[in-house]
């Protein structure tokens, strides 16, 4: 592809300009958490005059943050695993076979995204009560798995369809069963799609606060967003503390992302189908 002389510089300026817009508010949030409220109002853009961790210490003293963190981790890891397993099985079936009901099945899965799940909260609450799941992490795990399936099936089906049929045929002639084909042939090639689903669902279940608000009343079973929310009420006027709270709620996710991103991004750039 031919480039005119300005194409590349333009690419750079454009890409990095947008990146700065993406980053700046997050930076602002972290910087503001070190400021006093008065400082935030008088000079919202400036660097904080002094760095003190006092606000953070104060916040952490009031809540069992480690317990929240543990709960969030358990809930997110288990639901993401369940989503990956169930959705790739379902997407494999929909994308790689042509039973005449497949389109309907695909659409059936999509339907879950088309209604506000809050609509069903009363029947859900009764269901959880009957299953004895109220006030357990299982209630959250099942909810995140169930609500995560539609979008995951959509993404995985879309990408599974792009795979050439030859690879699969070869394995089939070798006598491989469906499960083996999915595991050994399809999934390894679909790392970018799986990675995308994984990170998306992890974020989703990590950040949700609606279901824990409704299903969890036990302090020791709360997840990070809900636990932090109860602090927000107390500090609605103290913006410095508010920003510290926002940063605390977001930090674990950001750190996790940086740890996992190398792995994850590598998977992406290696590409699937050459």
């Amino acid at each position: 592809m031919k480039h005119t002389f300005w194409t590349k510089p333009f690419y750079y300026v454009f890409a990095f300009f947008i990146a700065s817009i993406s980053l700046y508010p997050i930076l602002l949030m972290i910087l503001s958490s070190f400021k006093s409220s008065a400082e935030i109002f008088t000079s919202p853009l400036a660097f904080p005059k002094s760095f003190t961790l006092e606000t953070y210490k104060n916040l952490l003293d009031q809540i069992p943050f480690m317990q929240y963190f543990l709960n969030s981790t358990i809930v997110s890891v288990v639901s993401v695993s369940l989503i990956l397993i169930t959705s790739s099985l379902a997407a494999f079936y929909i994308a790689r076979f042509t039973f005449y009901w497949n389109n309907m099945l695909f659409f059936f899965f999509l339907m879950g995204m088309m209604l506000p799940i809050k609509l069903g909260i009363v029947p859900l609450f009764i269901l959880m009560k009957d299953l004895n799941l109220l006030n357990t992490l299982w209630a959250l795990i099942f909810m995140y798995t169930a609500t995560g399936i539609p979008i995951s099936v959509l993404i995985l089906t879309g990408f599974f369809r792009t795979m050439p049929h030859e690879l699969e045929e070869a394995a089939r002639i070798d006598g491989a069963g469906n499960l083996r084909i999915l595991w050994n042939v399809v999934l390894p090639l679909m790392r970018p799609a799986l990675g995308t689903v994984m990170i998306l669902q992890f974020i989703q279940s990590w950040n949700d606060f609606f279901f824990p608000l409704v299903f969890i009343t036990d302090e020791m079973k709360k997840t990070i967003p809900v636990g932090m929310l109860s602090l927000f009420g107390q500090y609605s006027a103290d913006w410095g503390a508010l920003f510290a709270g926002l940063t605390l709620a977001s930090l674990p996710m950001i750190v996790l992302f940086f740890i996992a991103s190398k792995q994850f991004m590598e998977g992406l750039t290696q590409g699937a189908i050459k």
Binding site: A90, Y93, I117, V122, N178
Partner: peptide, 23 residues
């Protein structure tokens, strides 16, 4: 092969489809 979508269908059916349609 027809067992493949079953796990997803069960969880999704029980915790999403059923409550929504009940509502």
């Amino acid at each position: 092969i027809h067992l493949f979508p079953i796990p997803a269908l069960i969880i999704y059916g029980l915790f999403v489809v059923y409550p929504l349609f009940a509502a």
